[in-house]
Design a binder for these strands. Structure first.
Lengths: 332, 332
DNA sequence: GTTGGTATCGATACCGGTATCGGTAACAAC
DNA sequence: GTTGTTACCGATACCGGTATCGATACCAAC
């Protein structure tokens, strides 16, 4: 059974293609009886409209392209869930691509996605190379850069300042009396936002005449296991630390496990500090410090923003840049 | 600047639309000089092909529709990453939808996705209601049901038997001498695979004349926090348990945290058992038992399978059902 | 009976590509 | 000079819808 077309439905109902189209879309210019007939035949032939034809003809799609760097870190799926939820009911549909933190791959994914003529595009961060930026600009659709705020946005921007987040965390920890800091991170060359947090953290330390006493990095991406491994190594090699800042909560959770295993009193002796505010971090048997990033909410906000943008009603858009501030918990 | 079309590129290069199309696609019937001219003009006009027109005209798309129940549990994103990786280089592009474990929502998402005329569709599990099954069947494209194996597949099926997984885990635990079991789960009415694992587990217990001594459920979906909360409650209310089986590793991790907080000797006194083999579970300071589900690999396998299926080369498909067996670890 | 308005429907021209077939030019072979 | 062959290119007809304009029928008003 081949997919039936509008033409066939129309023929079966004894009307023209155009009338069938109108009937199915619920247009006004169709008599009740005709509409009934068409709907009935469409049902009988289990007709499914062809969006390719629809979009080509009407010159607009219901697609929202989204590019995320990874699926292994729960924050991105949560962000996607936020976008998906925010789009629900609007008729818009999200299409996802994974760049693996690879700029070249990201560019190809975006190029590919743009060929579908999406109604809008959401990308993660705002450190795209010039060529990617050009592509996004010439697409002539709303572009939302999500998660990050440190930089110059192309169009819309929803996120938080990771530099400031690192800074604020450092200040809070300093205020709580911490002085000897270690840093443990992973894939710092590719995860630019983690790098910004670290830079912000270091800036605040410098202002207090301090710097990281020890640093450990992992070439691979963040994971609890890596966090634990690096923490055990650092704790074995360095004495007198009173706080370790991690690139994120996955790594920090590993740090908490390391403390538990070594019997180190945490948070009293050494405080573990991360970023994201993951579910697992809050349930940990020991208290850790973290900045809660509203990733789902950022996704929902982005969705709302682009719905407003594509509604054509300018007045619905109050700001092109929407800034979130992560809440810091567990410090003292 | 409006998006330029093939027609414009052709005009700029002084050739016909058709020749430009051939040149851009690298067809043989174009002279070197003409090809150069066209490519140059395409570059200059930053021409991006229109996939809508391409797909409509050529009657095939590079889209693979994927429906997952959730993004809050890391296993689904990991599966998506597997699919995405398995598709890389094939020109195929995955499109995701989230059903929130809601059959009605799943049906609507599938209906919507089918209107894009995808080359194939991947759905999670194989317990779709009859109407959804009919829709999938009449789509006339490869359908892959992923993750689960317990049931009658529509077309292709890649997954593992959750019933058997529960059974095997119970047997392993019984063999290790555990006798007094508790069960802690969440959203058991919606997460059918967790339900199947529980049923399998209970079956094995019954065969040994046993049953769960205590059970706790959570209406919401699995999370570490819920696992911990329910565990604390169960451990306070029930004495002499020597093992708790959880609906998955998120919940089990919460259980491990509960033991750590209460100072319960685990795994000696009480063994925590989960499912999935998450990174976090393996790094935990106490050993927990779990079945390692190869979710990324299942995604990759599904991708490979549908590439084979849409290659038209029947011989590349050896089996329509591909079964995985989860490895059990941490039992004794 | 003519005019005008309203409700309903159809013909036609796109949308931006590709498939298919045919045409032309240049050169070799006879 | 005629005939093939080969290399290259273009005209035309789709793909499956929608936009737009116009046609027709019917009824009310004058």
């Amino acid at each position: 059974m081949r997919k039936s077309t509008l033409e066939e439905v129309a023929a079966a109902a004894g009307v023209s293609k155009m009338t069938a189209s109108r009937a199915l879309r619920g247009a006004a210019d169709v008599s009740k009886e005709t509409r009934e007939k068409v709907l009935q035949q469409a049902e009988r032939l289990s007709y499914v409209g062809n969006r390719l034809a629809l979009s080509l003809s009407s010159q607009r799609t219901n697609l929202v392209a989204v590019v995320v760097p990874s699926m292994s870190n729960i924050v991105f799926p949560e962000m996607l869930a936020g976008i998906s939820a925010g789009l629900r009911g609007s008729g818009m549909q999200a299409v996802f691509g994974i760049s693996d933190y690879d700029m070249a791959k990201e560019r190809e994914i975006i190029r590919d996605m743009l060929s579908w003529r999406p109604a809008a595009i959401i990308v993660t961060g705002l450190d795209q190379p010039a060529e990617t930026v050009r592509m996004l600009q010439s697409a002539e659709i709303p572009v939302i850069q999500l998660m990050d705020l440190d930089g110059t946005p192309i169009d819309f921007n929803v996120g938080l300042s990771h530099g400031k987040a690192g800074e604020e965390m450092a200040r809070a920890l300093l205020a709580a009396g911490r002085r000897r800091f270690g840093y443990i991170g992973s894939a710092i060359d590719r995860d630019l936002r983690a790098g910004k947090r670290k830079a912000g953290f270091e800036k605040a330390l410098r202002e207090s005449g301090l710097s990281f006493v020890a640093e450990r990095f992992n070439a691979a991406y963040s994971s609890v296991a890596h966090g634990k491994r690096l923490s055990l190594a650092m704790l074995a090699a360095t004495r007198n630390l009173d706080c370790i800042y991690y690139s994120n909560d996955d790594m920090a959770t590993g740090g908490a496990f390391a403390c538990l295993e070594l019997g180190i009193a945490s948070p009293t002796e050494i405080l573990i500090a991360g970023f994201n505010g993951l579910d697992v971090a809050s349930a940990l048997p020991i208290r850790i410090a973290t900045s809660i990033s509203p990733r789902r909410q950022m996704g929902e906000t982005a969705a709302a923003l682009l719905l407003a943008a594509s509604s054509g009603d300018e007045s619905r858009i109050s700001e092109k840049i929407i800034a979130f501030t992560p809440e810091i918990t567990g410090v003292g």
